[in-house]
Design a protein around this nucleic acid. Structure first.
Length: 568
RNA sequence: CGGGCUGUAGCGCAGCUUGGUAGCGCACCUGGUUUGGGACCAGGGGGUCGUCGGUUCAAAUCCGACCAGCCCGACCA
């Protein structure tokens, strides 16, 4: 490619409002342009990187026996209704109607469609299978942000495994886990494997691949022993609290104006936060639930949803609460409540001398013994882990770090195969639902994470495996015939050796070419100018280190070519 | 969905308070001088000022509604 003919619109200024480093750099270096909130055009340089990302994914998926498909992005509503997710996905699913008025979904993932496809198999002899695609997904995110990191239309590699039994699924899951480690290694950034909530996917377990980053939107809990979990899933051990002996009767007392835990801490005759019961009202799949936890603890809503087995969980509205408990938030409690499902966090187990709302505005109850006075139906763990909590595995302090989710693998089980009637006959001639797993990688998000983790003040530093071009030949004075002849010759040599080369033959001053080459992040640069050509050499600069050296023109193809091959 | 902010040339912005018919830097075009780290001189092209409505002799500027984008929160595989 000749730079003079390429469309690489680099900018001198940062784009307005771009917060993430990767967003600024990808826009400035001419890789992407925003079309609307959460939708980006990939420009030619961006497409080149995307091709390389996809090629790596494809190699590793093929290496574990994957077969590539391409399924439609538009789906009939019917198929989503069969799994129940037409309703569960809510506003996150783009929906439209065709000319006949039929409901159509834009695919946000393909469990349903692959399960529908696999229903064509009929014998255990045809399993196991690993099927995948690299395809566009649509998700109507309430708040797209940070450039490519959170968008509404994006490319995903999604794979699905189909097995006769759980042991087969376990093997497929491990194969994908290992393939993902290889893929992210080749992308050149660090990932943590963490236990995760399966959310609306369902199934028996899932692992997320998380790239640590200060701009990440996920919080990962890690321990020295290697335990790592998304905060939506993470558990921790609580230091036990021994309340003094107190068999006093529950007593109601007036607390005018007290609305919050903090209010009651400072209220005369109140209680420390750890001796209060926080009473939260949720609607879990239409059913009201009281969720109790210690006053100084925070709720982890996803943990609550998972433990309740609820596919939709939302805080109750104030009028729903009034109808249920007869009081307003700030004075709520579970003492004496019997006709509502009550779940309590394990942090409240065995506690006495607690204070809680009286379900009577501006009144609270003291001397509450949780197990004596409240009809707790289930003890669950839905407290949010905080920095410094104790690891349940090794007992050391847990740390919380921010991270970006680049991959997520799920053991799905038979939820989708049952919904789509995807059964096979086993050795005994008995029909069994196929056991499924699903496995995703965000393509553009991975590109953004690479840039997020590898750049400097001058621009992007692409790893050799993903760079849009392996090497740029910057021609000083392209109007000088001997210089241009040497540059053109090197350009042809390197290309015929299989490298991606861009020849910067623009009629620009040298500084412009150097700045652009660094901004775009091309790993190797060869500078060809009249001065060097006269002496029989060129300058070779490595983007990542800044190391410069002169090379004899005759040695360029082998030396630079060797360096590129070694870096890949 | 709640809170905050922004919309003026391809990009980054000023002008709005105090209404009088639009400007700066970069980019772009032409000519010239330059050319090993974002050159200089001269000339030039490009904007229904987000949209609709209102006030006014007159609106980028004042008022209203709407649309879009960004940030914080809620939400989210």
């Amino acid at each position: 490619m000749k730079w003079s003919q390429a469309f690489i619109p680099t900018l001198r200024d940062d784009p307005a409002d771009a917060e993430a480093t990767s967003h600024k750099l990808l826009v400035r270096a001419g890789f992407i342009r925003q079309l609307m909130a959460g939708a980006y055009s990939l420009l030619p340089a961006g497409m080149r990187v995307r091709h390389k990302v996809i090629a790596i994914i494809r190699e590793e998926m093929d290496a574990i026996g994957g077969q590539e498909f391409l399924l439609p992005a538009i789906h009939p509503a019917e198929i989503w209704k069969r799994s129940g997710r037409w309703d569960d996905m809510g506003d996150e699913m783009f929906r439209l109607k065709d000319r006949k008025g039929a409901d159509i979904a834009l695919g946000m993932t393909h469990e349903e469609i692959f399960a529908y496809t696999v229903a064509e198999l009929s014998s255990y002899k045809q399993l196991p299978q690993i099927w995948y695609q690299i395809q566009t997904k649509f998700r109507d995110e309430p708040r797209p942000k940070a450039g490519l990191l959170r968008v509404r239309e994006f490319t995903m590699k999604d794979a699905y495994s189909f097995d006769v039994d759980q042991a087969g699924l376990d093997a497929a899951f491990e194969a994908h886990r290992e393939a993902y480690v290889r893929i992210f290694n080749r992308f050149g950034f660090e990932v943590l494997q963490v236990e995760a909530s399966s959310g609306s996917m369902g199934g028996s377990g899932s692992v997320e691949f998380m790239a640590p980053s200060p701009i990440g939107e996920d919080i990962v809990v890690t321990s020295e022993c290697g335990y790592a979990a998304n905060i939506e899933k993470a558990a921790s051990t609580l230091a036990p609290i021994y309340d003094p002996e107190n068999d006093a009767e529950v007593e109601e007392f007036a607390t005018p104006g007290v609305r919050t835990i903090a209010d009651l801490v400072t209220f005369d005759g109140g209680a420390a936060a750890a001796s209060q019961i926080k009473t939260l009202v949720f609607i879990a799949d239409e059913e009201p639930v009281l969720a109790l936890l210690r006053g100084d603890h925070d709720l982890q809503e996803q943990k609550l949803a998972d433990q309740l087995g609820a596919s939709n969980l939302r805080p109750a509205e104030e009028d729903e609460i009034g109808e249920l408990l007869g009081a307003h938030p700030g004075s709520l409690g579970a003492v004496g409540v019997s006709d509502v499902r009550i779940v309590a966090d394990v942090g409240l187990r065995g506690r006495s001398s607690m204070t809680t709302g009286a379900n009577n505005d501006d009144h609270h109850l003291r001397n509450v013994s949780v197990e004596r006075d409240i009809s707790v139906e289930e003890w669950l763990d839905f407290r949010a882990v905080v920095d410094g909590d104790t690891c349940t595995v090794c007992g050391e302090a847990l740390s919380l770090i921010r991270a970006i989710e680049v991959g997520h693998i799920f053991k799905l089980g038979t939820k989708y195969s049952e919904a789509m009637d995807a059964t096979i006959l086993d050795q005994n001639g008995k029909a069994k639902p196929v056991v499924m797993g699903s496995y995703g990688i965000g393509v553009e998000r991975s590109m953004a994470v690479v840039v997020e983790s590898s750049s400097d003040d001058n621009g992007i530093i692409w790893p050799a495996a993903l760079a849009p071009w392996d090497v740029v030949i910057s021609v000083i004075r392209p109007d000088d015939a001997p210089t241009m002849a040497v540059a053109t010759d090197l350009y042809r040599q390197l290309m015929s050796n299989g490298f991606d080369v861009i020849l910067d033959d623009r009629k620009e001053r040298p500084g412009v070419k150097f700045k652009d080459a660094e901004l775009v992040g091309i790993p190797q640069r060869i500078t060809v100018g009249p001065r060097g050509v006269e002496a029989g050499n060129v300058e070779w600069v490595v983007r990542s280190t800044g190391n410069k050296q002169d090379l004899a023109i005759a040695d360029v193809a082998t030396t630079v070519g060797g360096a590129i091959s070694a870096a890949k």
